[in-house]
Design a protein around this nucleic acid. Structure first.
Lengths: 358, 358
DNA sequence: TTGAAAGCGCTACCAG
DNA sequence: CTGGTAGCGCTTTCAA
């Protein structure tokens, strides 16, 4: 690779016959500089295609225009769709993003990063990012490890921090709950309305907040409608296709009859469908399914997947907005709730076809 | 948010009654420090949980331990699976990653980032990353924009640069070709062996290198087997499910008979299957399909997708390795070729069931 | 082995 | 409006 000769503000100053202060002024465009000098400096800047060193800048101005995002697994559509929105918004505000996949819990892929989450926290501090966004991971566990809490607290003491996950006491950051489970309720009601009475719940990792919220909402729905709660009808595992497959197999092996199920997301729904298919059970003819978390391709699946749109992209956008505000000192501990919407497609059969399932 | 009091090397030096030089020495662990001072300093460091400011460090040492990765769309499984490997390896080597999605071409999602790719290049330079990896994007176009070339050249002049994409002359960086199309050949031969003679090609963006390579390989196979090339059987679009859907609809509208098709990847295959299904055409009974690029969930699809595994994860690993080597001055312009492997599942019917398709 | 001091490239304050 | 200068927090000579 070629010799890298970095030109600096001093070079520009020399060549334009002004002081570096003046160059700095035109660079930042806030102070006033006489037109002729301005022109001269701008010319030299353009000539060398000069752009100031962000490290040096950050060292003194205390801001790097970089944000940290820590999440479990970007290959999960849930996170990637959110991330895209996050990055877009960050970019508009002039920030770039340091991304860390902790691969925590996403053990489905069999891979796992060697570093603990606290490693990433420290890195964010060292690299002086202007703020950090944490999405899920350890934090999503119902019981959070104490070391983790400590590390998180330390991070929050150093940097503006926004977290999508369960609130932890005594940590000075903004916690945002991803959802309230109302979508699950809607989905359940829809299945009920179609005549289903034995409805299972499939997928999602045990002891993870989001799973918990949804399972609770599911149980809640059962109670509201005066139906019995049967733990045998709940089969958890994880969030990926293969997990839907295994969870459904587990469920089937229990031999408890059901006519419909809620899947934690589209991937799980698809995996579960495969497991059913292996037993010659067809969706929607034999079993109906609604996924609690819409991904982008459900519309092209056979059958087209009826799902709940939880509006992650919006969540992403709001969340990064909150972080940027927090960086600027605007500390709104807002609660977002997006009305989740039921997208009725084909996986429950005819939209209004009531049937007496037995 | 709390007051952020940053403690610095000076604080540590004071509290341990040594000079900052000494603290720096224990921090870096290269020079020798007397045992008692070492112990004292280490204690104070631990007490305050001190970790040096990476900006200040980078400013002087000329390395930030940060790598830049620029790719079109992380929500595309092709990139996300590769990225995960890239990050893992980078992490092991002590680097963190600044990720930029250009959303170039990924217009399927309807979103598009406002910034040009050269914006990201400049950002990488400003932020002083130690090296940059570019995957696809503009660079994948058969005809690359001149401004882009200029910007890329500038980047390559400043930083170690590794690119997955087509080679561009006069730019001092390492170009890596993602594949040679041999997988497509294998797939084609398999279809031929099953008795298919009218084989279509579906999906992939026109004038993008990877599409080009595969289409050429497809045409090449046709010629090798003495079959006629019919441009009507080639229906391109993009790389997502919805694109497979539209591309297949286009193909069907041409009314040119075919009994099998190659899909540019699993997503496209699934979208195409939906389009066929809408016309009461079933896979594999009526039409067979092989996808040229395996994603993780094809195994759970109905029918299970026969695909080619192009080993992106390995590519990711090799590529980041090459970058890190380049940073360290090891300039191997290696050529990787992973033997792509045909994963036979169900989407072509019985593995060896020859049939006389007419 | 150790500390003083000179920067890395930039911003921001100061006096003029 | 402008230039000089004092740092930001760290590494790295250079003497001692």
């Amino acid at each position: 690779m070629a010799e890298r000769e970095h030109i600096t503000i001093t070079d520009i100053a020399k060549e334009s016959n002004v002081s570096i202060s003046t160059v700095s002024r035109v660079l930042n465009g806030n102070a006033r500089v006489s037109p002729d000098k301005l022109k001269r400096v701008e010319e030299v800047i353009r000539k060398y295609n000069f752009s100031p060193n962000a490290l040096a800048r950050g060292l003194i101005s205390k801001q790097t225009k970089t944000l940290g995002v820590i999440l479990p697994d970007i290959s999960n559509p849930y996170f990637s769709s959110m991330f895209l929105e996050i990055e877009r918004f960050a970019l508009e505000a002039g920030y770039s993003i340091l991304l860390c996949n902790t691969l925590f819990g996403g053990s489905s892929h069999g891979i796992r990063n060697a570093k603990e989450e606290s490693y990433y926290f420290q890195m964010m501090i060292d690299k002086q990012v202007d703020g950090v966004l944490i999405i899920g991971g350890q934090l999503d566990l119902i019981t959070v490890d104490n070391n983790y809490k400590l590390a998180l607290k330390r991070l929050a003491d150093q940097l503006p921090l926004v977290v999508i996950g369960k609130k932890i006491e005594n940590i000075d950051c903004i916690f945002i709950q991803p959802e309230n489970g109302s979508g699950v309720l809607t989905a359940f009601n829809y299945l009920y309305m179609l005549g289903h009475r034995k409805i299972a719940f499939v997928g999602g990792q045990t002891s993870v907040t989001i799973t918990d919220i949804r399972v609770n909402s599911y149980k809640n729905a059962l109670q509201l409608l005066g139906l019995p709660i049967d733990e045998q009808l709940i089969s958890l595992s994880d969030y990926y296709t293969e997990d839907g497959y295994s969870a459904m197999n587990t469920l089937l092996s229990r031999k408890v009859p059901f006519t419909a199920f809620l899947a934690i997301n589209d991937s799980v729904a698809i995996g579960a469908q495969r497991a059913l298919f292996d037993q010659s059970l067809k969706i929607p003819d034999d079993i109906a399914v609604i996924s609690c978390d819409q991904f982008l391709t459900g519309e092209y699946h056979i059958p087209r997947l009826t799902s709940i749109n939880q509006h992650h992209d919006m969540l992403g956008r709001m969340v990064i907005n909150t972080l940027i505000n927090a960086i600027q000192g605007i500390n709104e501990s807002a609660k977002f709730s997006f009305t989740s919407e039921l997208v009725v497609r084909e996986s429950c059969g005819t939209p209004l076809g009531f049937r007496n399932y037995t």
